[in-house]
Simulated scan of single mutants.
Amino acid sequence: MRWALWCALSAMLLTQSATAATYQAKGPIERRYAVEGPWATTTSVSGGPCDREGHVCDIWYPSDLGSNPLKGQADGFRHPVIVFANGTADSVAADKNAYFLRHLASWGFIVIRSRDGGTGQGDTVRDTAHYLLGLSRDPQSVFFDKVDAAKIGLAGHSQGAATATLLFSRNDPLFKTYVPIETPLRAVCVVANCTIDLGALPQVTRGSIFYIGGDLDVV
């Protein structure tokens, strides 16, 4: 079911920027997840830097943390996490991809992303995940004991997609699954320092990956 959710919501991401008002979901799975999930959501910004380069993090999360209305569970639920890696940018606005990321939160995920627009080798991406894990161990945080550390996924767009694939190729133990969206040409990654060692992919022994692309994206 998690893969079905990813498919449906990713289709929304790839179409909503140009045709959000007119796009019609196709098929029962996409129609189900195109609507808001059962969780009300809250958006927050980290109180300070969340990665080694000094960027702040944006976080979208279920307002009633610990509940799971899909299972009739009022408390004690630990939420899966999605870390998002941005595409190339000199600066990332707070509302960049916010429509998509908040929508994921409405389906029970805690979603976090650093505002780094040059994710490259993935150092700031991993920092972002560790930042949230630190909050989950802090009794003063709303995320205390609310994070499922065994269910952290990494999604990324453009350069961020290449970063996600790169970390997957390295058997990174932090993430359980990866969703690269519109991975750029290899030449682009040479410049952006996100080149994937293709020979490493057959050697991957852990995790799963779901590639999403569009044939009209020439980059």
Rank of each mutant, 00 (worst) to 15 (best):
I152D: 06
Y61I: 00
T183H: 06
I82L: 15
P202Y: 04
R115S: 04
K71C: 12
F143H: 12
S114L: 04
F168G: 10
D145G: 11
H157T: 05
F100A: 10
Y131C: 03
E53I: 00
D64A: 12
R186N: 15
F100P: 00
D90M: 07
Y178L: 14
Q140R: 09
D145C: 06
V83S: 07
A4T: 00
D95I: 05
D116L: 04
K71E: 15
W39D: 05
C194P: 09
L154K: 05
I181C: 07
C194Q: 09
W39F: 14
L185A: 13
T88K: 09
P62C: 06
P69G: 10
Q203K: 15
E30P: 02
P49C: 05
R102M: 08
D197Q: 13
H55W: 01
V45G: 03
L135T: 05
P80S: 10
V188D: 13
Q140D: 14
R31P: 01
L166S: 10
P202L: 05
L216T: 11
N171R: 11
C189N: 14
S67K: 06
L70H: 07
S158V: 03
V125N: 06
T205P: 00
L133F: 10
S17R: 09
Y33M: 05
Y61T: 00
P62T: 08
I59L: 07
S106H: 01
R78D: 15
F84R: 00
C50A: 11
R78Q: 15
L14S: 12
G160I: 02
V92I: 14
S169T: 10
Q203D: 08
E36G: 13
P38K: 10
Y131E: 02
T128W: 03
D148K: 04
L132G: 13
I82F: 11
V56Q: 01
C57W: 00
A25Q: 05
R52V: 12
T19K: 04
